[in-house]
Structures are given as C-alpha cells and as structure tokens.
Design a protein around this nucleic acid. Sequence first.
DNA 1: GTTCTAGAAC
DNA 2: GTTCTAGAAC
Length: 743
Amino acid sequence: MVVLVGPPGSGKSTFAEAVADGSTAGRHWVRVCQDTIGNGKAGTKIQCLKAASDALKEGNSVFIDRCNLEREQRADFVKLGATLHVDVHAVTLDLPAKICISRAVSRKGHEGNLQGGKAALVVNRMLQKKDAPLLTEGFSRIMSCNDDGDIKKAVDLYSTLGPSDSLPSGVFGQKSKGPVQVGIMKFLKKADSTGVEESSGPKLTLGETKPGQQNPLPKQENVEAMFSRAMEVEKGLNDKKKNEGHAKESDCYDDGSCTLAFPSISTADFQFDLDRASDIIVDTVANFLQKYDSIRLVLVDLSKKSRILSLVEEKAAKKSIDSRRFFTFVGDITQLHTKGGLQCSVIANAANWRLKPGGGGVNAAVYNAAGESLQHATKKCADALRPGTSVAVPLPSISPLHQREGVTHVIHVLGPNMNPMRPDYLNNDYTRGSKLLHEAYSSLFENFASIVRSHMGKVNSESGTEKSASGGTSPKDTKVKREDNHVSERMKKYKLPCTKANAPNGLDNAMTSSAVPNQTKQGNNKKSGVVTSKTWGSWAQALYELAMNPEKYKNSDSILETSDEFVVLKDLYPKAKRHVLVISRMDGLDSLADVKKEHLPLLRRMHSAGVKWAQKFLEEDADLVFRLGYHSVPSMRQLHLHIISQDFNSASLKNKKHWNSFTTSFFRDSVDVIEEIEQHGSATTSSDEKVLAMELRCHRCRSAHPNIPKLKSHIANCKSSFPSHLLQKNSLLSSSTMHMDGT
DNA sequence: GTTCTAGAAC
DNA sequence: GTTCTAGAAC
C-alpha cells in the first residue's frame, strides 16, 4: 500500500494513474481516491479504508489518493497495512506551494470539485499543517519527491515493480530544490472572486513522464543479505558486550535508514597508526551517538581481514557502544546496497585535499562510481579541503551512485597525513595528527547529522521547503578559500593592521561604506599576493573598527555598553523593534567559523550580556520576544551576537536575505552554538546561500508569502505560537520565560 | 551591510 | 503605471 502525501495540485492522482497505467511488470494497482469514492458526494476516510482493505485482500497493490498531510490522517491506513500484513509506503509529493496552488487553481473538472479560487486557500492552509511522514508511524519506506524529476523516478520505480518484488526500506528522496519564489497571494486574491479559470501558473508536467524501462530494481535477496550480514556483525558485538542494553529501544527505529557509511580515514595511504586511529574512531562515534538518537554509523572496509575493523570492533564492544547503531561492515563502500545489501543514504569519501578524482583507494572508487556529476556537485560546495575537515555534497539524482545505491550525499573528509611521501606530512607528530583525525571524524559526523536533520525534519515543526534548502549541507567554513594553504595551521587569517591612517573617524563613518577610505580595503585584504581566507569588503569592516577602537565612538548613542571583551551596539539598521549586537573585541575572531573551545567563556559572557539587554527591553515592552544568535556566514567582520525581537517590525528589513538570515537555519541560536562548541570544539555553520534565497515563510505559522510587503502585513497580525523546536530549546526570551524581578 | 536601478511581475 | 526583486556598486 502506497500512501500518497501531498496537497491538492501536488499530482497525487496523476502519480497513481501513471503507475497504474504504466505498470509493466504485472503488478496490479488500484487507486483509492477520496474525491471520487463518494460517487458525487464528498468521500470519507472510512470509505477509503474499506476500499483499500478490499483491494488489498484481493491481492492488489493500492494507492491511497487523498492528501494525508497530517499524521493522524495517515494512521488508520498504516494500521490497516499492519493488520493485513502488507508493507505500507509513503510517497510524499513535496512540490513548491506555488506549483500546487497554480495547478489546483487552474484545473478544470476536478474530481473533488476543488478548483478555482478556493483551491488556493485550501492548499495554503493544508501546507501549514503538514507533518512529514516518519518511519515511526509504521511506514516501511518513505520516498520524498521534490520536483518532476523525482516524481518521474518514483513513477518508474513503482511501475516496474513486479508482483513479488519489493523495495528497500528506509527514507529516500533528496531534497535540494533551488530557491523558489512563491506567488501565492495572487491566487489567494482570486479566491475572493470566484470562478477564475485562466491558467497562469506553471503547467503540470507529470503527464509527460512515461514510465521508464531502465530501472535497475534492487533485488530482494540483497536486502536479506544485508540483514544477515549486519546481524552477524551485530551479534558478534552483542555477544562481547553482553546485555548492557543502555540504548532506548524506540530510538533506533526512528530513522533506520539514516545511515552513514564511512571508511577509516588516514589509515591507508596516510599511514596513520591503526591503534590510535581505532581509539579515535570509537571515541568520536561514542560521543556522537550519545548526542544524536536515531542515527546509524557503519565503518566500512574492503577486506575481511582488515585490522582497523577488528580493532574498532573490539574497542566498541569494550565501550558498550550500541551495536545496532554502530557496526563494522566488510564491503565496497560504493556498492553497499547492490552488493552488500546495506542501505546507506550518506557515504563518506576519504578525499584528497583538492577534492579531485584519482589517486587510489576509496577516493578513486567513489568518484568512479558516482560519475562526473559528483565532481560538478563537489565544485559547487568547495574547492579544497584541509586536514581535519569535511564537506557534504548533495549527490545529483542522475548519479549512478544515487540511482543504484540510494546514496543522497557524499561527505568528503580529509584526515592528517603521516606518510612522508605525501603532502603535508606531519612528521610523526601524533599530538597534532590525533587532534586532526578527531576533528575529521567530528566534522564528518556533524555534517551527516545536519543532513539527517534537514531531511528527516525536526519532527514536524519545519516546512518541507526549509528542510530542503538546508539539506545540501555545504558549510561555508569548510569551503576552503586558499588552495595553496590547505594545512590548518596555515589557514589562520591574516591579521589586519589597524592604523590611525585607515581607521574611520566616527561611528557614522564606520557604519557607512562611502566614508571609509579606500586604502582600508587594499591594506586589509591583500598583502603581497596572499589572498585572505575571507575577503571583507571595506564596508564590512565597520564592526571590526568599532571593536578595536570603541573609545572613538564613546559619544555615539548607538553604543549601549563597552567592556574589555565586547561592545553592545544598537544595530544601525535594526531589523526589528529592538535589535542590538554584542560585538566581541577579540582581534582575529571574525565570525562563527573561527570560534573554538577557548572562546567559550567569551561566548557565554556575550550571551549573558545579550540576555541582560533583552531583559531590559522586556521591562519596557513586555510583548516582545527575543532570540539571540549568530549568522552562519556574517556579512560584517568581527564576531557579533544578534539580540533581536521577533516582531521584525522595521523599515530596514527590506529583502529576502534579511528575512531568511533571521528566520532560517542560517540563524544559529546562541545556546546551540555554545552547546556545540562545548561538545565538539566548533560550531557547525551548516548553511549555504540557498537558505537565504528560500521562499518567504512566516517565522511563527510557517505560511508562505509571495513578497516582503505581503509577508510583513502577515507577520504584523500572526498570532500563531512559535515553532516547537524554538519553544523546546528555550531559544526564545519573553517576559514569561524570564524572571523580571531579577531573581 | 546599504543604495541604486533595470527590468520583471503585477 | 506601479510595485518589487535581484544584482552591481560601494
């Protein structure tokens, strides 16, 4: 049974019909459609359940063609599947709201009579309530389609499915849509004047897709092989560790497919000591598993006799690491699914620093298997890698590795080199080597976590679109900007000379680019041909100037507070009623990417200062709600913490970038940043430019809006509660969450 | 970061 | 004709 999930206009009926009509391998499909089941009257869920049950009992496969956007709406169908012992899949048609609405609005003769203006209202309302399907609901397989290409793939997959074939379990579907501008309001306007029928939106293209022929269906035996293989390993580990049983039962089921397969880093060509490496792997894995539930890591090596595998197994057992969530696996990392039967959505590549194909071992294998599209995709994310870092690359769906193995992302990792014949030889310095190897794994795992987070969703509080945009995790901090300096120690930024000659004269000058002398730019950013790791335009230096010489701006009423460690400044272009910055005064601490463990005390004090000011503002206006956080990739040099009220009522908030920089994952809550640094020494700036170009959504109710003015008029009145992840995390400061009496 | 403006969208 | 966005310049 396939439960289709999608709003009106997302193409559910078209999907089901395409599969049913194109079914080439003898499987018979029945479409259970709530719109038609009532024979003219409105259909009900009960009728659908009955029809589905009948069809299944007769040996048919069934599509449940109703919106099914909410968990509750799907539950009975999942239950029915369990009763009848059939697999229940979810196929989510997660297209941009704009497309669904335009289709729903402009279609004629719709089965359920949902067309014209009222469709727009219905779709927008529905999209706000949707819960992404989860494996925990009882689905054996979840597939998410984000564009017509995905849909075509899914149609092909199902229509070539023979009567006894089955599809691998897990979660599939890459979410990497480009920015989408949603033109919703025009349809909503039409909703008022009924009977609008002209078609102005994008055309439905699903109809054009013909079921394909070339689909290499995963074979059932492989899936079984996977289980027996994995179980063997798990059993081995289990036996050794006895019944420690510390892992919570339910956790592992959540995202069973959220699996990362990774090779041992640095131990092959880079000749890193195996004993030390295995310690580091086990340590880092243990930490990571503790931090995240429902994530699975698999260490892969080609050879059965692999020394690193046995060392790791042994140490993992000793540490009582949950063997369901971490185990070793013998096989080719590029053929885990087809040859080994192990489904992994993400694989790591032991990359070279140039991120280029070739060499040998895992890198060559991964590039070979993935085809050219991996090179292109990689290029978009980073030019080079330094030891101890990683970069996540969304694998295009055309890649054979994606199609055949179900791999949605490749994370390139570069470990330290202990081989004198290779570049950046560490000369047996295991203090540094170990540190770098640890960093490499941490970075790898964190990148993986971001992918999982963005794909699985923070349960249901986020919209699919938002998830998609942050899905292609390619942290800016790993985007290495200097090809020649790929050793981390050499990556330190060139410190700007701050002389009186090039320092602006006053705060207003510092805050406006036009008055900053031109030589500042040249003097700061270039020195004898060495390009700094981030080029800060002259206008971007203002906060830095202020942080270095706050006394110059003493008299400005923009400065609220100055200490040795930070300056508190009213943002010159506030994006909300209250918007202040706590600017660190530490030279060289340019942005979040530079922050390390040693800065934790500073970060905590900046946070406290921010809280203090938020509190002060709340005394004046108890209706405000504050959020404290950093921009993933700030435009202004010098680490600064934003304290911003969530009304976003400001004339200075003018464009999409402004909005998205405060309301998407681009904004990193101070509390989260501190926690991350405590736990693994650096902050993930897991965000790329895509999130900034994302469709505009209300930060409270997540509704989509076509442009800034419309968004603003919406947020002026939106009284929805904030998304649960913010409430749960305690990221919001309001008069009700603070002790206003000072206790 | 902002401002300016061409041209797209309405 | 007016509104709005996005890209370039600063």
